[in-house]
Design a protein around this nucleic acid. Structure first.
Length: 597
DNA sequence: GCCGTTTTCGGCCCGACTGTTTTCAGTCG
């Protein structure tokens, strides 16, 4: 069973508790939801942890749920779950994926109309709504019947949150909406918040906060957005709409005097906010998006905060960078004023994963721009050095000698560039070399003479088991010139699942042998992921952020790599390409032991 | 059911909005 299936099962358990007796099981229900969250953000398959006897100690999973998970992974089912689910029709579960459907509504509809087949329940319900039978149910009416129809229709079309956006897409959508919002004179400031501000690798919907003294004017303006598809809701201080691309935009307004608290609230994450508010309660304070007040004093007005800094300060904390706000220890550190100083884009001094159009008859796609053009762009970005790393010449079409000839020709050209730009930027001769299914690298030994170092990566035969593919990579990395392992999990967001690796083994090998893991900044990769970066940072693994650019306009995607590195709590010291040129060259030549300044 | 710079027991974030209701239930973030 995969993690996503297990977390879904736990959410279903929570739904069943809520149907049975929401009040009685209120905290069990929460515990199961929290456990599901915890499993979703695990870097490792639970099943692997179970096999290695490492199921204990996961944050958010206590002894009871741990024993249920053990039973699940051992026998494929859980006695307790079977029992509590006995009298709840399984057909409610598919409905829970539809926005607007919660456990209660799903249960009511499924039992009222005796819908027993989980495979057809959505269509069955749609047909019943079309007949007009839902409107007569107690607690339902014409509008809620129309809502059911609309919700099912939108769900089938994949609108709302069925697929998550990549960061550049979400950024652009937010920019368009904010440009529109700012046309209203009532808007003093408007910012994108939520997971976009936290820099998550994928974004569900766009959250926007507006500072204003005239909330009604702002909301009126917002709901008149010309490219809207539908207004989901419109209240006194919030509104939501679907825009024509099917994406959801959530808006919240606040006065400028209280805007700090709204920034904090709407940035999230939920887990961060809950923890923050629980901590505040322990100090006798109640926190909301309006501000902070004394807990017992129900009538008292919230004390307002203009900025986030003053808000966190009022709770005795350092301001916490949005990328860290996932409730994974940042609140405790902020209380001690010991947050790490995260890496910044301006710390980056070069990019080592660049594909130019210099042809060496590569195995995979070549770049679109010349080396000169890429160098000029690197200069524009203020870089001190860069590395060219085209794909290796295809092995099927070339003899070993031909491969050497091609790389020699390329090195000569790189030398020409080195001369031309010698006063401005340093250039490394790298290559992105396939680790073949056998574990061998895809160029002959003699060809390494033309390289300063090599990036190694996997581009085929992904479907190997965890153990074999880990061995394959270790073998590829064991070459002394193989210094960087690129896009380690090979995932493509919304397209290709990550490969499963034994990171424990890989970390240990890389630490011992001075190899770096790449943080690939391409927004469809972001690989390593934030969680794995955090692990690597904890283990003291050297990391490097590269764009994998195949054209000059991709070179500015470095910012996404830096963002994901920040989400992994990486500091400048953890990142190879923040180092000075001299330290870098000694690292590449296996003379150094650990990066940093 | 979880968890501890608030405790190993006694707590568990805070608020908005809609629809069907006359004071609330359900869903969402």
């Amino acid at each position: 069973m995969k993690n996503f299936e297990i977390s879904k099962l736990l959410r279903n358990v929570a739904a069943v508790y809520s149907i049975k007796d929401e009040k009685k099981y209120r905290f069990q229900l929460l515990a199961y939801q929290k456990a599901a969250d915890a499993i979703e953000s695990l870097p490792t398959e639970l099943n692997d942890l179970y096999k290695e006897n490492k199921l204990q100690g996961i944050d958010g999973i206590g002894p009871t749920i741990q024993s249920r998970l053990t039973e699940l992974l051992k026998t494929g089912k859980v006695q307790h779950f079977e029992e509590i689910m006995k009298e709840i029709p399984k057909s409610i579960f598919p409905l829970l994926d539809i926005p607007g459907f919660g456990p209660k509504k799903a249960y009511k509809l499924v039992t009222q109309f005796n819908l027993k087949n989980p495979d057809t329940v959505i269509v069955d319900l749609e047909n019943i709504a079309k007949k007009g039978d839902i409107a007569n149910l107690p607690g339902f009416g014409e509008k809620s019947q129309a809502d059911v129809l609309r919700a099912i229709k939108e769900f089938k079309l994949g609108k709302g949150k069925s697929t998550r956006m990549t960061l550049p897409y979400a950024n652009e959508l937010a920019r368009i909406i904010i440009t529109y919002i700012e046309k209203s004179d009532a808007v003093l400031a408007a910012y994108p918040l939520g997971s976009l501000r936290r820099g998550k690798d994928t974004i569900g919907d766009i959250d926007i906060a507006v500072s204003t003294n005239k909330p009604q004017e702002v909301l009126d303006h917002f709901i008149n957005y010309p490219f809207k598809e539908r207004i989901i809701e419109r209240g006194d201080r919030t509104s939501s709409m679907l825009v024509s691309s099917g994406r959801q935009i959530d808006l919240m307004v606040q006065s400028p005097e209280g805007f700090g608290a709204l920034l904090q609230h709407f940035t999230g994450s939920k887990a961060h906010n809950v923890h923050l508010r629980e901590y505040a309660l322990s100090k006798g304070l109640s926190v909301s998006d309006f501000g902070i007040k004394k807990k017992k004093d129900e009538k008292a007005a919230y004390k307002k905060y203009k900025t986030e800094e003053s808000f966190y300060e009022a709770l005795g904390m350092q301001w916490i960078p949005p990328e860290m706000r996932e409730d994974t220890g940042e609140i405790e550190l902020a209380l001690q004023h010991k947050l790490p100083e995260l890496i910044k884009l301006s710390d980056i001094k070069g990019d080592f994963h660049l594909h130019s159009n210099f042809s060496i008859e590569e195995s995979h796609d070549s770049g679109q721009n010349s080396m000169e053009e890429m160098i000029e762009e690197a200069l524009r970005l203020g870089y001190k050095y860069l590395g060219f790393s085209e794909h290796n010449p295809s092995i099927g079409n070339h003899t070993e000698k031909e491969i050497c000839t091609l790389l020699e020709k390329r090195l000569k050209y790189i030398d020409k560039m080195r001369l031309k730009y010698k006063n401005f930027i340093r250039i490394f001769s790298l290559l992105e070399i396939d680790i073949l299914a056998s574990g061998k690298l895809a160029i002959p030994e003699s060809a390494f003479a033309y390289l300063d170092a090599a990036i190694v990566s996997i581009h085929s035969s992904f479907a190997m088991n965890r153990e074999n593919i880990t061995e394959r990579i270790l073998q590829g990395l064991s070459h002394p010139k193989a210094k960087i392992f690129a896009h380690p999990t090979s995932r493509l967001i919304n397209q290709r699942a990550p490969i499963e690796l034994d990171f424990e083994k890989l970390w240990n090998f890389c630490k011992k042998n001075d190899k770096a893991f790449e943080i690939n900044a391409a927004p469809q990769r972001l690989d390593l992921t934030d969680i794995l970066i955090r692990e690597a940072v904890n283990k003291g693994i050297t990391l490097i952020i590269n764009t994998d650019s195949h054209a000059i306009d991709q070179m500015n995607l470095m910012k996404y790599g830096v963002t994901v590195a920040r989400r992994g709590w990486a500091t400048k010291r953890d990142i190879l390409n923040t180092m000075d040129y001299n330290k870098l060259t000694s690292w590449f030549s296996n003379e150094a032991t650990k990066g940093g300044e």
